[in-house]
Amino acid sequence: MAHGHNSKEKVVFVGDSRVKKNSMVNIPPDFTSFPGKSEAFIPYFLLKEWMVGVVVLVGFLVLTIAHPAPLGYPADPMNAAFIPMPDWYFLFMYQLLKYPYVSGDYVVLGVMGIPGLAFGALLLAPFLDTGKERRFYRRPIASSLMLLSLISCVYLTKVSWDHYQHQLEESGTKPEHIVREEKAREAYEKGQPAPSAVKRAKPVAIVAEDDPAYGLIKQNCMACHATDLNGGSGIPALRGIGDQFSLEELHDVVTNGNGNMPAFKDKLSTAEIDQIATWLSKQKKAAE
């Protein structure tokens, strides 16, 4: 063994490895740095902290069951009436920017000046408040500045929230997640399924697939318009084509072609083109 437990070696390794043997092995720290009933972190103290954690966890789970997370209606950029609102912990900054001397021409003061000063001071607090004194009542400047900031934050948040409530009342709107919840509850009381806010365009179905004309479509059209008749880049879908063109127009396009669409008058008989055009004109989106 290259690295045996030879105490004459300067560095002792664990097993045949490069892991250095720690010389402090198994020496528990002495508990004399603080007076009183100190105890080890694991398991004694962690158990007590877990007790506090359990109380918080129960309260938290009760909250999650009593109040489902809000969900409004899908984002609609065209919705001009929606009143924008950030999450509650950003409201104080949001409200600050509504005052005249920190917005408009002075907006730099609002987005950089005041928040920069406040958060900068908070970030660098240990280098600004360098005295040895720890008790807050012996540090009047630091403590009063902190209290003042707290009061301003609470005040700004409250003003912002009240203003939002006022806006809602004035415009006669309810927050969307509440409207949704109410509709879901109404539906539930009537025994109906909950209304879904998700709207999906249903794929257009192929009409009259058992028609003999469908065989002609398979032979002549699917090479370009795709086997599912959904078309491709620059090539229109044939599903629902009857909503866009009349029988005569379809007849004309198949006979004479149109742009990239080749003419079929030499390949197919008039009767066959009739059949295809008639079938295509039936391809209309089903009424919902």
Binding site: K21, V25, P29, G36, K37, S38, A40, K48, M51
Partner: peptide
């Protein structure tokens, strides 16, 4: 035996938690 984890574990588990932060 292979990684000598005891010092690390002792450090995490056995460090002193003083009375003044103990809610008990």
């Amino acid at each position: 035996e292979r990684l000598d984890i005891t010092p690390m574990w002792r450090d995490v588990a056995d460090h002193e938690v003083p009375e003044h932060v103990n809610p008990a």
